[in-house]
Nucleic acid binder design. Structure first.
Length: 582
DNA sequence: GCCGTTTTCGGCCCGACTGTTTTCAGTCG
């Protein structure tokens, strides 16, 4: 099961949505939303807290604490159950469509009895929205487009959702007697940004105990298939999980086969074929005699085919096989090579944890040698940042930095907002006071390509902008990226010495692996950042590392693997470049 | 429903955009 905190978070988020739809009480809904976020980002496991401990969580009072207790005791919350009876689940689904919020979802349900996304599409095609107050031709168009976007994401889930589930199942199966090995395979092992189904591989001499354990898992809502070597379940959330059990002798070949991708496998098998061999999930065989040559480890299989082991994130048939054959496979970035995080928030703006809490985690849990605090700047009005507040934070950062005997060197930065014209929140003089600035787009997503490209390029040309944050601002499955000419932007990054961020938030992963590959060609440097808004989210940087690996990045390409001295030189070089000559 | 006091009720992130209206509600970040 997921951590109880996440279950409670999802439950209160749902309750908040239901409140907005049924009562329209935005403040009460917001209270549940805030509580949900706090609980999800809270360090301590809620199931280990007593009532007093629960009420110590920010935004949790007696009413919500009671509901958490009720959930932990009974597995349900009666108030939420009651709300569910009043709103079909499909109506809540409607609010996931961009531009459709609780108010209009309620209208659709109450006047047209639309209670699911397919029903909504049908109603639009039947012209039933036309005469509805608050809806028009543009609304119809936008809703249909939003539905398309959702369907393109399909039933795929984000990495952490699949990763957590897979981790639990691997732990459960590893505990079964006779388990020689158990690992995640498939697109999750390749760290694709979304995962359609979870593949798990077990090496064991007998498969029955694993099939029995697997289909009896508490996560299994439905057993889709059950056989001697292969079974499939569907979880309550609808995610499909497949288990294959192979003999330990076939482990390497099977892991290779089930990791994919399909295109990678086809090409590797063709190479085997040309050498008079045959590769299957059971091993690498001599085509004529059928004698098994190798199969125990992936390394051995690749090696026999004339290649070094290829890291799973590279296995997409994007040239990795040729590179492996020619001995020019990149040494991809690893998590351990990261020496710092350059984009993080605190509760001074929209983060959940204090400066001290974030820094302590950066030191104790991540062992960083430098760490940047980059809270939002004033242009994001909702964050209520002021000159005074950021300067006060700088003092606080300096004091905290001086008091740390070991632990990361602290950099005081900010996440600037890139205005429609490419300007940022503060003038040069004020910006010069920061150790480091990230700059990102947060609004005006609809600008045309030319204007948008100019906007970003101008931000790159600002001598105080060191990192270009979440470039496309896409939200996976929710919002497409902004329209830019990527090559022009990457050329500007390279020319001006601006690092391109690989934002690790799992619903962003921005820039994507494809754009990383494209930017690399321009000689761009990168920063892999967590953009953490809580202590726990600092760990999300591993998704950014996965994305960087898929983009073939090495430690040399990533500025936050560099020594602090080299990083500071990079920052200083840009500032010098921006200074007028003489 | 939570929070912070002006301690027990009133405010709650705020501004902009969009498509719909014909002055604004709904949605978003």
């Amino acid at each position: 099961m997921a951590r109880p905190n996440e279950e409670v978070e999802a439950l209160f988020q749902e309750y908040a949505d239901l409140i907005s739809i049924t009562t329209g009480d935005a403040h009460r809904a917001r209270a549940y939303e805030k509580a949900a976020r706090s609980i999800g980002g809270y360090d301590a496991d809620v199931s280990r807290l007593d009532d007093k401990g629960l009420r110590a969580i920010p935004n949790v009072g007696s009413s919500i604490a009671d509901k958490i207790s009720e959930y932990l005791r009974t597995g349900r919350v009666s108030a939420v159950e009651e709300a569910r009876t009043r709103v079909p689940a499909g109506v809540r689904q409607l609010t996931a469509i961009p531009m459709l919020g609780p108010k209009r979802a309620k209208t659709l349900y109450e006047t047209l009895h639309v209670s699911s996304v397919p029903e909504l599409v049908e109603a639009i095609h039947a012209g039933r929205l036309r005469d509805l107050r608050g809806f028009g031709a543009r609304s119809e168009e936008k809703i249909l487009h939003g539905v398309e976007l959702m369907q393109a994401a399909g039933d795929r889930v984000l990495l952490p959702v699949a990763g957590e589930l897979a981790g639990e199942i691997v732990a459960a199966l590893s505990a079964v007697t006779g388990c020689v090995r158990c690992e995640i395979a498939g697109s999750l092992r390749r760290m694709r940004e979304t995962v359609g189904d979870v593949d798990i591989l077990v090496a064991a001499r007998k498969s029955e105990p694993f099939m029995a354990a697997f289909t009896a898992l508490p996560q299994a809502a439905e057993v889709v298939a059950e056989g001697p070597t292969k079974s499939g379940i569907r979880t309550r959330s609808g995610l499909r999980v497949d288990l294959r059990v192979v003999h330990p002798d076939a482990w390497g070949a099977a892991l290779l086969y089930f990791t994919g991708s399909r295109a990678h496998n086809i090409k590797v098998r063709r190479i085997a074929q040309r050498q008079g061999l045959k590769l299957s999930e059971y091993g690498l065989f001599d085509a004529e005699s059928g004698r098994r040559i190798v199969s125990r480890t992936e390394e051995k299989v690749y090696q026999r085919l004339g290649m070094p082991w290829i890291p799973p994130p590279l296995r997409e048939d994007r040239g990795e096989i040729e590179a492996a054959q020619e001995g020019r496979l990149p040494e991809v970035l690893t998590r351990r090579q990261l020496r710092g995080d350059l984009h993080t928030h605190t509760d001074l703006t929209d983060g959940l944890a204090t400066l001290e809490e974030m820094v302590r985690a950066a030191a104790d849990e991540h062992g960083y040698s430098y760490y940047a605090i980059t809270d939002h700047a004033p242009a994001l009005a909702m964050q209520r940042m002021t000159d005074e507040k950021i300067l006060q934070q700088r003092e606080q950062v300096r004091r905290l930095g001086a008091s740390l005997h070991k632990g990361p060197r602290l950099l005081h930065g900010t996440e600037l907002n890139i205005a429609p014209d490419g300007g940022v929140d503060w003038p040069d003089g004020f910006l010069a006071g920061f150790d480091l600035c990230v700059a990102s787009v947060h609004s005006h997503f609809q600008q045309g390509r030319a204007a948008m490209t100019r906007r970003i390029v101008r931000a790159c040309e600002n001598p105080h902008v060191h990192v270009l944050g979440h470039l496309t601002t896409r939200l996976i499955g929710k919002r497409p990226g902004i329209d830019i000419d990527p090559d022009e932007v990457f050329a500007a990054c390279a020319r001006t010495g601006t690092a391109l961020e690989v934002n690790s938030q799992p619903d962003r992963l921005d820039v994507s692996d494809e754009l990383i590959l494209r930017a690399r060609g321009h000689g761009v440097k990168f920063a892999v950042d967590s953009d953490a808004h809580s202590v726990r989210a600092l760990d999300g940087i591993r998704y950014g590392v996965g994305t960087a690996q898929r983009g073939w990045l090495t430690a040399e390409d990533v500025i936050n693997t560099w020594s602090r001295q080299r990083l500071l030189r990079f920052i200083e070089a840009k500032r010098r470049r921006g200074r007028p000559a003489g």
